[in-house]
Write a protein that binds this DNA or RNA. Structure first.
Lengths: 334, 334
DNA sequence: CTGAAAGCGCTTACAG
DNA sequence: CTGAAAGCGCTTACAG
C-alpha cells in the first residue's frame, strides 16, 4: 500500500499542504469553516495519519524518552518503568526501554543510540562507569534524570530511596523485638553502588545510636552465587546472629533458600527483615516483614522531573537528590 | 549547544555532504584514502553523531519496533520483553514498550501512535477487541506478530504456549499421584482469552482420556477479587477436590492465600500445581510443583519472526500459530 | 572518485 | 483566510 501524505490530503481537499498542516496542528484561528470541513473529510476518506518522524525532524522533538535500567527482570525496575510509562502516556510520550545489565559498555552504546535517535530525554539507573559521558550530557544541557544511584560530582537530578532510613527502620525494629545480634546481608560492595553503601552505613549508624557495637563479622557481602556459603559461615560463627537484614530481594531469596534447607524456624531461630516488598511476602510462612520502596512514586517523580526539564531546558534549577521514604510492613518474620 | 550536522562535517573536512554520507554508510568502494581520513577526523573533532530521525525519514525505516503488552508488571510479559530486547539490540533495533491493560481503547491508541511514529513492526499481546484494526494491519502488510492469544480469522502469526499440553501435564501428574477429584481455578472466562480457554479445554480432555468424568463444579473461574469466596465454595463442596490446578500465577497466589489462612496442609490436605513457574516456587514450603512457560524462547521467537517480516515484507509466508512446550517442574506440592 | 540536486513528509514564517 | 517557498538533516541516483 502506498503511504498517503499530507500532499495527498491537500490535493484531495483542494487546499495547500500548509492549510492541512494548520488543521492538523489545530490552528483554526483563521480557518474557514468550509476549508476545515473539507480537510477533515479528506483525512477521513483517505485514512490519513501524519508521519510523526517527519514532524520530529522539523520540530526537533520526538516525544519519546529513553529509559535505561540495569535489568527489566528486576521487580523494582519493572515498577519504575510502569510508573514512567503511565505519566508519559498521559502526555503522549513514548518510552524506549533498554537493559544495560550493569555494563558500562552497553550503557554507553544505549545512551549514544538514544541520543542519535533524538529522544527528548533519558532516565537511567546509571552504572557509574561512564563519567565522561555523563559530564558530556550535562555540558550539552541534555535532559537526564538518574534513578537509584548517586554519581559523585555529576550534576544530574537523582531519584532514590532514603536508604539510611530503610536500614534504621529494620535495625530499630529488631532491637525493639529484643535482638542485639543483628547481621546484614548484601550483594558485592566493591562498585560503590549507592543503595548498598548507604544501607550498610545506615545499619552501622542505627546500631551505634542504640549504643550497640557493630560486629564486622555480621556485615557480609558477596556475589549471589557465593551466598549460601557466606550465610553458612554467618550461622556457624561462635556468636551467631539472631536477626538478619536482607539488603534486597535477591539476597532475601538466598537467605530463605538457606533457612529452608537447614530447617531454621523463622523468627524463632532467626528473625528476618528484607528490603523490597517481595510479591510472596504475605503468603510465605511465616509472612515476611519487609521494607517497601515506593517504586511507583519514584518512577512517577523521575518522569515528571524529566518532562519538566524537557519543557524548559534552560531552567537548570539546581540539582537535587530526591529522597523517598521507605515503609516498614510489619508481618511475622521478626 | 548547537547540534552539528553532516553539513558541518562536510565543511570541516572540505568535502561535500554526499561524501560524508557515503562514509557514514560505509560505501568506501570509490573513496580515496585521503578523503576517508579527512572525514573521519572531522567527525572525531566535531564529535558528530548522525541524526537517525533524518535518516529514518529518507529510508523509511526507524529500526524501532513497538511491543504492546497487557501489563509490564506481569512476570511473563517482562520475560518476553527482555528476550525481545536482547534479539533486537543484537540487530541495533530499539523497542518501545506500551501497556494496554487489556483495554481495547488503549490498544487502539497505541497501535495508531506506534504506526504514526513509523515503527517498523509491532509485537502485541492482543486484547482481541480491535478486529477491524487488526484486519487493517494485515491488509497493509504491516509487520505484526501476536503473542499468547489467538484471534480468530486474523491472519497474523502468533507465538503461544501449547496450553492443552500444560493442562494435560498437570492432570496426568495429579492422577499418577492417585488423585481423582481434581479442580481447576481460573480467572474470568468471558472474554474468550486463549490461554484460559485452551487450558480448561485441555483439562477436560485430559480427564476424559483417563476415563474420569468432569465435575462442572470443579471448574471455577472468576475475578481475582472474588477468588477467596470462590475457593471457599470449592472447599466446602460435599465432595471437595483433593487437587487443584491453578491456571496462572495470579490465581495460584489467591489459592495460597486461602490455604495459608485456613491452615490447609499441602499436599496432604490439598495437592497443587500452578501454571507459570513463580519466583518463590522453590523456597515456598512446600516447594511448589509448577508448569513453566519458556517465556524467553517465546519472546525470542516473536522477535525473530517480526524481524524476518520486516526484512522481507512481501514474502507473506502463510500464517502460523507457533506453539511452545510447557515444562513440568516437579517439586513438593503434589 | 566526488559533488550538485532532488527528495523524504512535515512545519512555519511570510506574503498576499 | 490561504498558499508558495524554504528548511529540518539526511540519502541517493546521476553527472562529470
Amino acid at each position: 500500500m502506498k503511504k498517503i501524505t499530507i500532499a495527498d490530503v491537500a490535493q484531495h481537499a483542494g487546499v495547500s499542504k500548509s492549510t492541512v498542516s494548520q488543521y492538523l496542528n489545530e490552528r483554526f484561528d483563521y480557518m474557514g469553516e468550509q476549508t476545515k470541513r473539507r480537510v477533515e473529510e479528506a483525512i477521513k476518506e483517505l485514512g490519513y495519519s501524519p508521519n510523526i518522524i517527519a514532524r520530529s525532524l522539523k520540530q526537533k522533538s520526538t516525544t519519546t524518552i529513553g529509559v535505561i535500567v540495569a535489568n527489566i527482570l528486576h521487580v523494582f525496575s519493572t515498577q519504575v518503568i510502569r510508573a514512567i510509562e503511565d505519566v508519559c502516556n498521559e502526555k503522549n510520550y513514548h518510552v524506549i526501554v533498554c537493559n544495560a545489565d550493569d555494563n558500562p559498555v552497553k550503557e554507553k552504546k544505549y545512551i549514544e543510540m538514544l541520543r542519535a535517535k533524538q529522544v527528548d530525554g533519558i532516565i537511567a539507573f546509571p552504572t557509574g562507569g561512564n563519567v565522561a559521558l555523563y559530564q558530556r550530557l550535562v555540558a550539552d544541557h541534555y535532559p537526564v534524570v538518574f534513578m537509584d544511584r548517586l554519581i559523585p560530582d555529576i550534576a544530574i537530578d537523582t531519584v532514590l530511596l532514603d536508604n539510611a532510613k530503610a536500614a534504621t527502620l529494620a535495625v530499630d525494629t529488631f532491637i525493639k523485638r529484643g535482638h542485639q545480634k543483628i547481621a546484614i546481608l548484601s550483594p558485592p560492595l566493591q562498585a560503590g553502588v549507592t543503595p548498598r553503601v548507604e544501607r550498610i552505613d545506615g545499619y552501622r549508624k542505627a546500631l551505634q545510636k542504640q549504643a550497640l557495637s557493630v560486629n564486622e563479622q555480621y556485615i557480609v557481602s558477596g556475589e549471589i552465587e557465593d551466598m549460601q556459603v557466606l550465610v553458612h559461615q554467618l550461622f556457624t560463627l561462635p556468636e551467631a546472629p539472631t536477626a538478619i537484614l536482607a539488603l534486597n530481594d535477591r539476597v532475601l531469596y538466598e537467605l530463605l533458600t538457606y533457612t529452608r534447607s537447614n530447617q531454621l524456624r523463622i523468627p524463632e531461630d532467626i528473625a528476618l527483615i528484607g528490603i523490597d516488598d517481595v510479591s510472596f511476602a504475605s503468603i510465605y510462612s511465616p509472612a515476611l516483614t519487609t521494607i517497601a520502596q515506593p517504586a511507583f512514586e519514584m518512577g512517577e517523580k523521575a518522569a515528571i522531573l524529566l518532562l519538566e526539564k524537557i519543557h524548559d531546558k534552560e531552567h537548570s534549577n539546581q540539582v537535587e537528590a530526591h529522597r523517598f521514604e521507605p515503609r516498614l510492613i510489619m508481618r511475622e518474620s521478626c
